[in-house]
C-alpha cells in the first residue's frame, strides 16, 4: 500500500467539487455519527450510504479495496475473541462443545464484532473520498481554516513530504540488507540489526532535514507556511453539507428513537 491517498485528485465528481473545508467538517461529523450507532440495521443502512458516497467520488474501488483489506486483518481477530470472551447475558445463544470443556461460543459476540467491522469499513469508505478527492496539501490547509494551529499544519505537511523521501530511503536500505543475505526472524540478531537500521535511518533523515531547513531559512522562511490556494464557498457546497447533515440526523433519529 502506498501512502498517496490523493492519487485520484484530478478526477471530476461532485465530491471533488465540494469545498475541502466543508467536506472535512461535514464528513468528520458524519463519521462520528456512524461510530455512535447502536442498531445493526441502522449501521447497515449507513454502510450502503457510504458505499454510494464512495461511488459518487469516482475513486476506483480497487484502490480502496487494499485499505479495506487492512481494516479486515485488523478487526478479524475480534470475530474470534469476542464470541469466546463476552459476558453471558440473559437471552444469549451459546454453543457448547461436547468434547472440549470450558469452550463456549456466544453468538452475541459475533454480532458485536460484526457491528464494529461494518462501522469501521463504513468510516474507511467515508475517509477515502474525504481525503482522496483533493490534493493532500490543500486538504491539510483547510484544516488550518478549521482552526488547527499553523505549527501543527506545517508539521503535518513536512511529515507528509518526508514520508515519501524516507520511504524511498527505507526501501533502498532494506534492499541493501537483503543483498547481504539479511532475513528477518525472531532472534536477537534481527532486532539489533533493525535497531541499527532505525538509527541509520534517523541519522540520514536528520541530516537531510537539517539541510532542507537551512535552505528554507535562506529563502526567507519565518515559521509560517503559506499555500497559495483560495477557497470560495459556493451555494452547492452549503447544499451538499446540509444534505449530509440531514442524512446524519435522520439516521441518528432512526437509530435512537424509531428502533
Amino acid at each position: 500500500m502506498r501512502p498517496d491517498i490523493d492519487r485520484y485528485w484530478k478526477l471530476e465528481s461532485s465530491i471533488h467539487n465540494w469545498d475541502p473545508r466543508f467536506k472535512i467538517f461535514t464528513l468528520v461529523i458524519f463519521a462520528f455519527a456512524i461510530s455512535s450507532l447502536h442498531h445493526l440495521s441502522a449501521i447497515v443502512i449507513c454502510f450502503f450510504f457510504c458505499l454510494l458516497l464512495h461511488k459518487l467520488s469516482k475513486i476506483p474501488f480497487s484502490f480502496s479495496l487494499k485499505r479495506l483489506a487492512a481494516v479486515t486483518t485488523f478487526i478479524g481477530p475480534f470475530f474470534l475473541i469476542m464470541p469466546l470472551t463476552v459476558i453471558t447475558k440473559a437471552g444469549d445463544t451459546i454453543y457448547y462443545f461436547r468434547n472440549i470443556p470450558y469452550l463456549e461460543l456466544n453468538v452475541r459476540g459475533i454480532f458485536l464484532a460484526l457491528r464494529i467491522y461494518i462501522k469501521a469499513v463504513s468510516i474507511v469508505l467515508v475517509m477515502i473520498p474525504m481525503f482522496g478527492t483533493n490534493r493532500f496539501d490543500i486538504s491539510i490547509k483547510s484544516l488550518e481554516k478549521l482552526k488547527v494551529p499553523n505549527s501543527m499544519v506545517q508539521m503535518l505537511l513536512f511529515s507528509y513530504r518526508y514520508i515519501f523521501v524516507f520511504l524511498a530511503e527505507f526501501k533502498q536500505m532494506l534492499l541493501a540488507m537483503k543483498i547481504r543475505k539479511f532475513k528477518p526472524s525472531a532472534n536477537i540478531h534481527t532486532l539489533k540489526t533493525y535497531g541499527n537500521f532505525l538509527g541509520t535511518l534517523l541519522v540520514r533523515s536528520f541530516e537531510r532535514t537539517e539541510e532542507v531547513y537551512q535552505a528554507m531559512l535562506s529563502r526567507g522562511y519565518k515559521g509560517i507556511l503559506k499555500i497559495p490556494f483560495h477557497y470560495r464557498a459556493r451555494f452547492s457546497d452549503y447544499l451538499k453539507s446540509v444534505l449530509i447533515f440531514s442524512i446524519t440526523f435522520f439516521i441518528l433519529f432512526y437509530d435512537r428513537i424509531l428502533l
Binding site: 518526508y162 532486532l191 533493525y194
Partner: peptide, 26 residues
C-alpha cells in the same frame, strides 16, 4: 516548542509512521 525544532519533530513523526511498516515475524 521551538520553531527551530520543527523539522526535527516532523522527521521523527515520519520515522514513527514508517516504523509501523517494519514487521518482525513471530
Amino acid at each position: 516548542m521551538k520553531t527551530k525544532e520543527l523539522p526535527k519533530i516532523a522527521m521523527i513523526t515520519s520515522i514513527f509512521f514508517i516504523a509501523s511498516l517494519i514487521s518482525i515475524p513471530l
